[in-house]
């Protein structure tokens, strides 16, 4: 039996801001239906990797293949159409649009072979949002904004979901809800790349982990292996 091609394939990705090189050859693969977490301290390049994949920062070298199609260096809207869905760390919900309108902005045609997301399905995934349809984005709580940001991106029926620190700045109970949501998405077969500071959060949702340090991947493997490897954790994550 032939293995299906990886959902996302990143090879030797280089990127930076101005003169500062942040990524110095990042490579990893993400299989369909898998949740991979990028771990690492501040400035290690987690967010930069996500931005470079999304085309918000132009990679200086390297290849990014999404379901076989090379998207490195393309413009963000083309990358989004090709099937990368980005949920930014700052959430960036449109403050003056209602929750329902926020979702509409994200709407893109369905993708062959994937059940299309609809507002109804998303309100089932995030029951908290169902009662807030007509509420402007600025007038919902931080946790609810995070849910809207994820739902809005899912409306574009992405092949791969990029989640940048979805638990950041949220109350522990809301973090629990995020974990539930990601696990639910996983059951639906979603492919997720997660950037995260918190190993505890990662441990609850991820299948595999990759640790970034000064712009390179220095450790990669199953999340359970990382949890068991106290040496690697102390070396790379100081925990």
């Amino acid at each position: 039996m032939m293995l299906p091609p990886p959902a996302l394939q990143v090879e030797n990705l280089h990127a930076g801001y101005g003169g500062a090189k942040i990524l110095r050859g990042v490579s990893f693969e993400l299989a369909a239906g898998e949740v991979l977490v990028l771990l690492g301290r501040n400035g290690a390049g987690k967010s930069t990797t996500i931005k470079a994949l999304m085309g918000l920062l132009r990679p200086t070298a390297g290849r990014v293949r999404l379901a076989g199609q090379d998207i490195a260096g393309a413009e963000p809207h083309r990358i989004a159409r090709a099937g990368l869905g980005w949920v930014p760390e700052e959430r960036r919900v449109f403050p003056d649009l209602t929750v329902a309108e926020n979702l509409e902005v994200g709407r893109r045609p369905a993708r062959a072979g994937l059940a299309p997301w609809t507002p109804e399905r998303l309100f089932a995934l995030f029951p908290n949002l169902a009662g807030l349809r007509a509420r402007p984005g600025a007038r919902i709580s931080g946790g609810e904004q995070q849910m809207v940001a994820i739902a809005r991106t899912l409306m574009g029926n992405p092949r791969v979901l990029l989640l940048d620190e979805p638990g950041e700045g949220l109350a522990p109970v809301i973090v629990d809800l995020m974990v539930e949501a990601i696990l639910a998405l996983k059951r639906e077969g979603a492919t997720v790349l997660l950037a995260e500071q918190s190993l505890a959060f990662a441990a609850r949702v991820a299948d595999r982990a990759a640790i970034l340090e000064t712009g390179r991947i220095v450790w990669e493997g199953a999340i359970d292996a990382l949890l068991a490897d106290t040496g690697a954790r102390a070396r790379h994550l100081q925990v």
């Binding site: 301290r41 501040n42 950041e168 700045g169 500071q197 994550l237 100081q238 925990v239």
Partner: peptide, 11 residues
């Protein structure tokens, strides 16, 4: 106000 938001655990 959130003095350690966005910092790594050791920091």
């Amino acid at each position: 106000d959130e003095p350690t938001a966005g910092m790594a655990p050791a920091e």
